[in-house]
């Protein structure tokens, strides 16, 4: 239990730092804006209280907003995916439901499940974030394309991160 809490706190801090230092500074153009930090919300244990998940999402989002000067946009998008997470988990639930100790990892639930789960929620997050940021529908298709391209990039980065974290002896 304590190990899980510590691992998650460390993961949250590490991915926030990764996001605001390395990924933000890469500046890959306006279409490629991965927000890898969603992993620290989505990788929380499956059986964790959904209210807590939402609080964590809110504060992580606010911290990202602080660094990006986007006041509230990342918080809104993160809270939104925390709200959608239980439903998405239900949709992709394996036959017979989740094991009580299941974690949203490749080891635990397989590659297909991982891609669908993280991909869906990353897309929802990026859609809300990019439309909030544009604050208009006049560039509808550009914004849509940005959200799709960027969330695909985010999902790939999440898969890489999950693979790297697998070697962690704590898991």
């Amino acid at each position: 239990m304590i190990v899980t809490v510590v691992v998650n706190i460390i993961r949250i801090l590490v991915f926030i730092l990764l996001q605001v230092t390395i990924i933000k500074q890469l500046d890959l153009g306006s279409y490629l804006n991965p927000f890898l930090y969603v992993i620290c919300i989505l990788a929380l244990p499956i059986n964790m209280n959904k209210g807590w998940v939402m609080f964590i999402a809110f504060f992580v989002g606010l911290i990202i907003d602080m660094f990006y000067n986007t006041m509230g946009m990342n918080a809104a998008a993160s809270v939104f995916i925390a709200y959608c997470r239980p439903a998405v988990l239900r949709i992709y639930a394996p036959q017979g439901g989740y094991e009580p100790t299941a974690n949203p990892t490749i080891q635990s639930l397989g590659l297909n499940w991982t891609i669908s789960y993280y991909g869906t929620l990353a897309l929802l997050h990026h859609l809300l974030l990019f439309f909030l940021e544009a604050l208009t529908f006049s560039y509808f298709f550009e914004t849509l394309a940005k959200a799709i391209v960027s969330s695909a990039a985010t999902t790939v980065l999440i898969l890489i991160s999950l693979l790297l974290m697998q070697k962690n002896p704590l898991k």
Binding site: M54, G61, M73, A76, V79, Y83
Partner: peptide, 13 residues
């Protein structure tokens, strides 16, 4: 809870 937190966030936006 979702409505409340989302309201806060969007208020700032």
């Amino acid at each position: 809870l979702f409505a409340a937190l989302e309201f806060f966030s969007l208020y700032f936006v």
